[in-house]
């Protein structure tokens, strides 16, 4: 198992968001977390990433994690290639420049790899965040609304990238409000785990 949650509960601001969430994710598997706004989908991903301590239950990760959220965390004044290389250097493994160049190519940002991040549009920022996930080359991806702001070509690219990652033995947990085609993905409906 790459990721294993056992009866996990999450509380924010003194309120119990969800409880009794269990999931096991093996290599090649994908899980789509659904539910209305504010149900705790992002919090579940943060718990899985180890950024939030679960209120109850056990979280076990057996592999490094790549996390993609709304927060871009790319220095606005530096060029896309430089700032992605910075993060790739913090990931394990060498050849950061080459990994980043390949990732930028995959998400279709090669023509603008040399411009500062502050000039990127919303969709380009999402692609940049996805490129950071790709360049990290870790088995477990946690993607929070990865399709937000992407055009139809971007969504197709996203589906393709996820499929390739799973084919290579990776696992994905993602939240989405868009209809994303992730063949064979299991669904976790978080609104069924809200304590009465």
């Amino acid at each position: 198992m790459i990721l294993s949650l056992t009866r996990v509960a999450c509380a924010r601001g003194g309120r119990l968001l969800f409880a009794g969430v269990s999931l096991d994710l093996a290599p090649g598997e994908a899980m789509i977390v659904t539910g209305p706004n504010g149900i705790g989908k992002s919090s579940l991903l943060r718990v899985a990433a180890g950024l939030l301590a679960p209120f109850d239950g056990i979280v076990v990760r057996s592999a490094p994690v790549a996390l993609m959220t709304d927060d871009l965390a790319l220095d606005a004044e530096r060029t896309l290639a430089d700032v992605l290389t910075f993060w790739a250097r913090l990931d394990r493994g060498g050849a950061a420049r080459e990994r980043v160049a390949a990732a930028i190519e995959t998400v279709g940002l090669s023509p603008i790899a040399g411009i500062p991040v502050r000039l990127l549009s919303t969709g380009q920022r999402r692609r940049a965040a996805l490129a950071r996930v790709l360049a990290s080359q870790v088995p477990l991806w946690l993607l929070d609304e990865p399709g937000n702001g992407l055009d139809s070509a971007g969504l197709a690219m996203l589906e393709q990238v996820i499929a390739r990652h799973r084919a290579g033995g990776g696992a994905v947990v993602l939240t989405t409000h868009q209809p994303l085609s992730v063949p064979g993905a299991r669904t976790l409906a978080l609104d069924e785990r809200v304590p009465a």
């Binding site: 990433a49 180890g50 950024l51 490094p64 996390l67 927060d71 871009l72 965390a73 913090l90």
Partner: peptide, 12 residues
Amino acid sequence: SGWFDQVAVRGL
């Protein structure tokens, strides 16, 4: 900007 989140998931 979420920079520290990205640092944290990298186990630093």
